[in-house]
Nucleic acid binder design. Structure first.
Lengths: 223, 223
DNA sequence: CTACTAAACTGAACGCGTTCAGTAAGGCGC
DNA sequence: GCGCCTTACTGAACGCGTTCAGTTTAGTAG
């Protein structure tokens, strides 16, 4: 039993790593399922025995990445950064650094907006991964002494996650050398984002904050 | 010559309208090129003689829509709205109203973020249409007596266009009855957007505005 | 009317993701 | 040893978007 499932696990891992290597070398779309099977030394059907679809291979990569990233992100957050901005910067650059060798693969993940498409970052299939990812922003916020406004606080992790997705989306399609524009974008936008969050705590800002919270609840809330 | 090209034009129009009807009835993905050809009474190859791909059919629809929409939008803008917010509201609701029968088709257009994909709203293929669309926001802004800050003003049409795309994206996947959530979202977000634009003219806001303009120039500008 | 040309088509074939009826192979009770 | 079930795998076949070497057809020059 154990040997049997162990061999199966090896085959699964072999197919996945072969697929990821090919995706990395020649891109997601250029790589065919037949090629993956041939390179892994199995029949075409075997890939479908372990992975429901070509997309599922990418999703498996995404899940694996998220698992590998979590200790890295925890370590980064454990460092004593001076404020939220520094923590967010560390979080996002760590992620970009981690994904750099697989940037083209990530583009397969970021390519779809349709929440019905399994590869969409908003899909049901990627829900578990997304929620864990949002958690890391929760932690980045929690590390602060300051209390965020009670009405806004529950939404902040999701808002920051969306911000991060925007950065990653830009990065994935950034043609400038070493994706330099993305980093410029990050340097310019992060201060604005954190400043806005700070400012939102001022009593003066209550009316605008209330509008914003209503907006967020329309987006994420029930009908 | 004229009769010949005229017949060709008729065939082209027949294929396009057949395709759009089928897309509307059963969705973009469910509809096959063979079905379109059969329904239009031509061979499969004929569809590819007139349209480079299945996507190109959607792009043709998009181009046609933009042409039909322009006089409608001009008429809407000609009405005496009391402010920018009212004009934007009229602009966006007119567009949603126009696209309502083809909402599922529009989802094919909004589904891709990849600027390399022809159906992406950011693609080279849809550039001409996008630029005309952005123009309508230019006009909505120009109708105002007030002068917008010189540094920000050139970016405002593109910013409003992105805002509109966000609304449309939400609308396309909005499952609530009659897409009521989208309209709620519009009611909640439009005041914030226009308020922010108003506030940006205050001298007090110069530093934040400068940051924002730099951000926009990083996004849209050259390397 | 005829020969020629370019535009307007045709449909078989290709490559792809995916499916599925079938086959091998290991463990288990007897 | 032998039957039997479950897991692991096979590869032919399907449906799809797309391509392209051909064929028809409409107009044109002689």
């Amino acid at each position: 039993m154990t040997t049997k499932t162990q061999k199966a696990e090896e085959t699964r891992a072999l197919i996945l790593s072969t697929a990821l290597a090919l995706f990395r070398e020649q891109g997601f779309e250029k790589t065919t399922m037949r090629e993956i099977a041939a390179e892994a030394g199995v029949a075409l059907g075997a890939t479908y025995y372990y992975f429901a679809s070509k997309d599922a291979l990418v999703l498996a990569f995404y899940a694996q990445s998220q698992m590998e990233l979590e200790p890295l992100l925890a370590e980064v957050l454990a460092r004593k950064h001076k404020n939220l901005q520094a923590r967010l910067h560390a979080l996002i650059t760590t992620k970009l650094e981690y994904f750099r060798p697989n940037r083209s693969l990530l583009s397969a993940l970021a390519a779809h907006t349709n929440p019905g498409h399994s590869l969409s970052p908003f899909s049901e299939d990627s829900r578990a991964i997304r929620e864990r990812d949002i958690q890391s922003f929760q932690q980045a916020l929690d590390a602060d002494k300051v209390k965020y406004p009670a009405d806004l606080a529950p939404h902040l992790p999701a808002v920051l996650w969306i911000y991060q997705m925007g950065i990653i989306l830009y990065w994935v399609y950034d043609q400038s050398p070493s994706q330099r524009r993305t980093f410029k974008l990050l340097e310019k936008s992060l201060p604005i984002v954190t400043r806005l969050i700070q400012v939102s705590t001022l009593p003066l800002m209550k009316p605008l904050r209330k509008l914003t919270v209503e907006l967020l609840e329309t987006i994420y809330g029930p009908d």
